[in-house]
Design a protein around this nucleic acid. Structure first.
Lengths: 98, 98
DNA sequence: ACCATATATTGACATCCATCGATGTCTTTG
DNA sequence: CAAAGACATCGATGGATGTCAATATATGGT
């Protein structure tokens, strides 16, 4: 494994290692259509700056993508995020079997 | 995804979200035979208590197993740890392609 | 029994970071 | 242009946690 791969994985782990961000990631992942930031905010009891902060970290980790439409920001999983989710579901399932 | 799955994933992410622990995990993963704690300690510039601390967290996350032989503690990946590693390698590779 | 060595635990400390209020930026609408 | 609303950034702060020194525990050898 290259240094870049290791660094990438670390970024992903740090991004998803926070309970709020994991929740947000799973919320976005569970929707067919892109999710508005306002919807994310109403789903969790967090201030708007905090939501924005988490979104930024998830985006910088390459897990979600942002697309602006007017004043609204819509978030959806990137291909990499989808890959990660699939991989993690398998891991979680394997963990449950034990 | 059940609450238990989510909780399990969060534990794994928190465990691997620290650079030292990720390094240690990858070190253990890269060896065919179980790795002695002393070998881990010599590989990184960390005090013995810190290594022990990280090992405990990785073990509690179900990623590695400990087996004692005399005074020595040998660590190796659990099946779940191997699953996680495989999944994550695929994710990292996918990330690199972008 | 005693000592040496390997690992675990404890306590203290420093640093990181999640969080929020205040403020800034940008877009739309009147 | 002004006002309103959505999101981003800044600064400050409290809590979580990585780290180490000191100490405890356990195992093997003499």
């Amino acid at each position: 494994m290259s240094d870049r791969e290791r660094s990438r994985l670390l970024t992903i782990f740090k991004a998803l290692g926070d309970p709020r961000r994991l929740d947000i990631f799973l919320l976005v992942a569970g929707q067919d259509a892109p999710v508005c930031a306002c919807d994310v905010g109403s789903g969790f009891e967090l201030s708007q700056p905090t939501i924005s902060h988490h979104m930024k970290i998830l985006a910088e980790a390459g897990l979600i993508d942002v697309s602006r439409q007017g004043v609204w920001a819509y978030y959806q999983l990137t291909d990499e995020g989808q890959h990660a989710l699939d991989a993690l579901m398998r891991t979680a399932n394997a963990a449950m079997v034990r």
